[in-house]
């Protein structure tokens, strides 16, 4: 059985057996189901065996923190092979093998369905859209008066908390996505933010998009302060919050082009803040002007 999904205007297909129980765990994809026009940026196919990849060459191992997912990436016979685990100590839960253009991926799940399907689809989506004017970001997004405000920051900074502070204190705010929204520069130059099936711990899988009002890089501090970022600073904060593979040369040009267009038209700020209502108001009053 094949299902087709549209995220940020891009269609992708997932192929799994009809009776695969996994379909039932993928409720977060349901709002994005679309008509099958046969035109996909990538196809993902569930398999129950992987080719023998003995002698594969490690390209990069990534684990930023003990409680964050671990990824290993190998170069195998002209393809990328990824192994993912939910934490540093956990066993590998999913293996995926993709061509280097990220158009066709096979994945084998060893355990933990929800983690496994999300991490491989996120990776494929991020890498297949980087050269299509789109950046999958690590951010929480709140909407206010028809615009989206992206809150960035390293894990644990309080991105979700800041979104909640807007929602609880400022009338007319709604959450768009709490973890991995897609930032897209449209053909007419407008920068929009799209909901995706990937929203972290918060169930917020909204198939909607709005123009971006501002991007705010959050830092924990003892008092609330906000300032506008220069172009290079804005570029840098978007660079670190990009959820794709920054280090792949094949991705770098597309990545740069989109980032440069974003910082050229969207105001970016740095907010040093406490987790309080004053921080939300200071931020709101500055960035919605």
């Amino acid at each position: 059985m094949k299902k087709v999904y549209k995220v940020a205007g891009f269609d992708f297909a997932i192929i799994m057996p009809d009776d695969e129980r996994a379909w039932g765990t993928m409720q977060n994809y349901e709002p994005f189901v679309t008509e099958d026009t046969g035109n996909y940026i990538f196809t993902a196919e569930l398999v129950d065996a992987m080719p023998d990849t003995t002698g594969k060459q490690l390209v990069v191992a990534s684990n930023m923190r003990a409680d964050m997912p671990r990824a290993e990436m190998y170069d195998w016979d002209g393809k990328w092979l990824f192994e993912f685990a939910p934490t540093m100590e956990a066993p590998v839960r999913v293996i995926m093998l993709t061509d280097k253009e990220f158009t066709y991926m096979k994945f084998r799940v060893l355990g933990g369905w929800r983690f496994s399907s999300d991490i491989v689809m996120k990776m494929m989506f991020a890498c297949a859209t980087t050269h299509r004017n789109t950046l999958m970001m690590h951010a929480s997004v709140t909407m206010h008066k028809g615009k989206g405000y992206l809150f960035l920051g390293v894990s644990g900074t309080g991105k979700s908390t800041h979104s909640q502070l807007w929602i609880n204190n400022i009338e007319g705010c709604e959450l768009l996505n709490d973890d991995h929204p897609a930032l897209k520069v449209e053909d007419n130059g407008e920068v929009r933010v799209y909901g995706t099936p990937w929203s972290g711990k918060t169930s917020c899988y909204r198939n909607i998009d709005v123009p971006v009002g501002a991007i705010v890089d959050l830092h924990q501090a003892k008092k609330n302060e906000i300032r506008r970022l220069s172009l290079p600073e804005a570029y840098a904060v978007i660079f670190v919050s990009f959820a794709g593979l920054r280090f792949l040369k094949e991705q770098a040009d597309g990545y740069h082009t989109t980032n440069a267009k974003v910082v050229g038209s969207v105001p970016c700020y740095r907010l040093d803040c406490l987790p309080d209502a004053d921080a939300a108001w200071l931020c709101h009053n500055t960035v919605t002007q």
């Binding site: 220069s230 280090f247 740069h256």
Partner: peptide, 27 residues
């Protein structure tokens, strides 16, 4: 390093795996 243009300003971005480190970006 690759020199990237942001209009009138420029940045040097480290290619490859070390590029993850944002301190290695120079304007």
């Amino acid at each position: 390093y690759t020199l990237r243009s942001l209009g009138k300003e420029f940045i040097l971005v480290a290619d490859g795996f070390e590029a993850v480190d944002f301190s290695r970006m120079i304007s």
